[in-house]
Design a protein around this nucleic acid. Structure first.
Lengths: 229, 229
DNA sequence: AAGTTAATGTGAACTATCGCACATATATAG
DNA sequence: CTATATATGTGCGATAGTTCACATTAACTT
């Protein structure tokens, strides 16, 4: 399925929880659309493809949507995550408490030198040698990679061997599965902060260039700086 | 312009730097395509729309591509970033040195209580009252938000007032600009880790469901295409 | 109870994106 | 200098994703 589609689903779900907390019982496709920035038609189509039932006059029932979306998004199962690499970013994530409201829990950390980790999170931290055992015993499926880029590829391999199927990679390398047995069975998401920042710089620069051009359009000098648009 | 398109540009650029370091002088569209996971045709089309010149026989000149891409992506200007919120995530980002290779530099941190920040990064940390002054004096255009979600919206407002035009938001709220003066002029990227994890859980769950289904369907035929490791 | 209103559900039109395939141009060989 | 091999540049068709528009149906009104 499409990436954007799934992203919308999670956004719907989060919004619905907030609406429920506010006391909403019913919600309309244009409410949801406005809030997450899509057209009402797309909201309805999304729900339609998922067979999420709405009421022809009274919109959608918040509880029903939440229940079904939770099921679709797998919240009916335990959402346990392990963190590999307990440096600054790894420990920051372990300390971060915002996951709990979404049913996500970081259950363990792993590091090559667990004795050196300054851990104030309460999450147990083990040596890398315990990774395989832990993941298999606890049937963990999702992991965060927060190791230096030089280690990332090795760690990826070990995680896949251990049985991890979903990976969120913070190392500044574009990880992808190049093995024989993973196509289709393992999902990797790369969160490349440098890439995001570069993206922003591009946007900012091009917007500024656009505005300058717009300014210049007012004055008719006749000399076009550029031919094509 | 399209998000995926810009993302590809940054990937091209990064790859080209690596190739240059390896001594490459020329590169072909299929090399680039293979490496970043797209078809050669798309690479050529991308370069074509950017008027990046190639040589009909000898592919593309690495140096030329890098130079032009750097310009398009704004690397000819200073790529300075400030971090607002110096908690675990904020300080982790400030300590992270991987940005430098991309010409990105975190130049300052801001926090409501700078005296409480344990700072080992060498990046100066100021109180929030200094934000406006700093951003305007140094003409900073890009900021990272790493404050709790309850503060994120307020911080966003202050950043826009100060003149920030690109924002990378780590707070677990979907920030968007609801003001009158920002449409088109400010870009916000949300890095919602919880959302990413949920996305992963969905993928993992649906893949498992698929495999179970496949198992159930294939039980009759008995033709196991794969059952290794 | 019948009419009106207001939302959904969805087939069709539209749009943007991507891949194909071939014309085009250039470096190298003979 | 001519021929040939090779990689670009791009019009065109395929495809996926989104929006439109309206038929449909449930709640509210009188």
């Amino acid at each position: 399925m499409n990436k954007d589609f799934i992203l919308r689903l999670t956004k719907y779900k989060r919004l619905l929880y907030k609406l429920k907390a506010l006391g909403f019982e019913r919600v309309f496709s244009n409410n949801l659309g406005d809030a997450i920035g899509v057209t009402p038609a797309l909201v309805r189509k999304d729900f339609s493809t998922l067979s999420l039932p709405g009421n022809k006059r009274g919109g959608y029932n918040v509880d029903t949507l939440i229940e079904k979306l939770d099921k679709i998004l797998g919240r009916d199962r335990a959402q346990h995550v392990v963190v590999v690499g307990c440096g600054r970013i790894g420990t920051a994530l372990m300390e971060y408490s915002g996951f709990n409201t979404d049913g996500i829990e970081i259950v363990a950390g792993f590091d090559a030198h667990p004795e050196n980790v300054h851990n104030t999170s309460g999450v147990p931290i083990y040596g890398m040698d315990k990774l395989n055992e832990y993941v298999q015993e606890n049937d963990t499926k999702v992991a965060i990679i927060a190791v230096p880029d030089s280690e990332a590829s090795k760690v990826l391999d070990r995680l896949i061997d251990a049985g991890i199927r979903g990976i969120l990679n913070f190392a500044p390398v574009e990880l992808k599965c190049t093995r024989n047995d993973c196509p289709g069975s393992t999902t990797i998401h790369n969160v490349n902060i440098a890439l995001e920042l570069e993206h922003l710089f591009y946007q900012v620069n091009s917007q500024e260039a656009e505005e300058e051009e717009k300014h210049a359009t007012g004055e008719e000098t006749g000399a076009h700086p550029d031919g094509n648009t």
